[in-house]
Simulated scan of single mutants.
Amino acid sequence: MATIRDVARRAGVAPASVTRVLSEYPNVSDDLRERVLAAVEEVGYQPDLVAAGLRRGYTKTVGVMINDILNPIVAKWVDIIEEDLRAAGYGVILAHSRGEHANDVANLKLLHQRRVDGLIASFASDQNEELAAILAKVDVPVVLLDRQMNLDSVSSVVSDHDYATRALVTHLIGNGHRRIALFTGQPNGYPSRERVRALQETFAEYGLPVRRDLLISGRGTEAYAAEAIATMLEHPEPPTAVIVGNGNLSALAGALHELRRRGIRIGENMAVAVGEESALASLHSPALTAIERDTVAVGRRAAAMMLNKLATGSSRSHTVVLPTRLVIRESTDWVLS
């Protein structure tokens, strides 16, 4: 790997002169700048960005931590955030926890060691005490994606999962359903907590008991959803309605495959709704009732919040709650006989 001394030898100047050019010092002659930059190109020199950042006090990088790269919602957030940060002159370092709490902690420590200027995160768990203790000591701005933590220095951009879940459960109860199953992601993540709480409180408002064996959580894989459906359908009193709350399309595919394998007719003897709108939900026959939110807006607001904090140095925490709405389709728009 080429060094500054290699550049200096090729340019015929002192190493200190190379450093002045690469550090964008003022009062450097055009001739010197041209010779050094030509030498950099010829020898293939790559500067140590972390070391340069330490000298400047910033690295122009933001760490982005995600919990499930297989989730298309999360993938869309990453794409939008990277685009908006790049446009503002920041690079992105991506870390993936694969839904594991321990990986959240390890990734946070790694990104902090890399001296990122800020952190945007969707943790596998936002109730991990070790993670919270580390975040409380982090000296860079932190913005959470659809997660909430009770820390003064941490801001959040979340969707209103409570509103749309209540509307969905009310819709199902109104159509005669009393045994409603809910699949969610990790129980210690904000969206899952909100969905479960909304279902429980809506049932309570109608004076109905909640079947806790119909509340199932886990990482949204196809196998997880298929196994959950199979287990519930073998119960003496199986659900008449299923809400696939996990945003991963693999979970929805697993549930639909298992229902089809068992000859269950959606929209006739089983109501099915999904917690995230998708092309699969709208194009399925019958079309699936879904909770819709502006995925783009979540990522864009998180990036804007981070850029504002980096520009102003603000450490004030606040939460932005973005709206959701229920889209009722044929899969649930019928009355249970």
Rank of each mutant, 00 (worst) to 15 (best):
A311K: 11
S315H: 05
V92H: 13
V62N: 04
P191Q: 05
H112W: 12
N67M: 07
R55Q: 10
T184L: 03
S23K: 06
G57A: 04
V105E: 10
L280G: 01
V157E: 12
L310Y: 11
M270K: 07
Y190W: 10
D6F: 04
N188E: 13
S153P: 12
E205C: 06
S159T: 08
G254R: 12
D162C: 02
P238W: 08
G176W: 08
W334D: 07
L259K: 10
R316D: 10
R147S: 15
A132M: 15
R166K: 10
R195V: 03
R300P: 09
R98T: 14
V116A: 12
S97K: 10
L256A: 06
E237A: 13
R325H: 03
L322M: 03
R260C: 02
M149S: 07
G189A: 15
A102W: 03
V274H: 08
I81S: 03
F123A: 14
D333Q: 13
D160A: 08
V169T: 08
V64C: 08
S217F: 01
Y90E: 11
V78F: 05
M305L: 14
A251S: 14
N27D: 11
E292Y: 03
A102L: 11
V274K: 08
S315Y: 02
L214W: 07
P47H: 00
M1W: 00
L131P: 12
T165L: 05
N71K: 12
E194Q: 15
L288M: 05
A51H: 06
R86I: 02
L256N: 07
A164I: 00
L280K: 01
A106Q: 13
I120T: 11
S159N: 09
V327W: 04
T312D: 10
V18P: 07
A2G: 03
G53S: 02
A302F: 07
A303W: 02
R5K: 09
G174W: 00
R261Q: 13
A297D: 13
M270C: 11
G247K: 06
M232S: 13
V320F: 02
T295H: 13
P72S: 05
R197C: 01
R329Y: 02
R301E: 11
V105M: 07
L37R: 06
I173Q: 11
L215G: 13
R147F: 09
A106E: 14
D117E: 11
W334H: 06
T61L: 14
E234Q: 14
N248T: 15
L182V: 04
D152N: 07
Q46D: 00
L326S: 03
E129I: 12
G53V: 06
V142H: 12
S23G: 08
L32D: 01
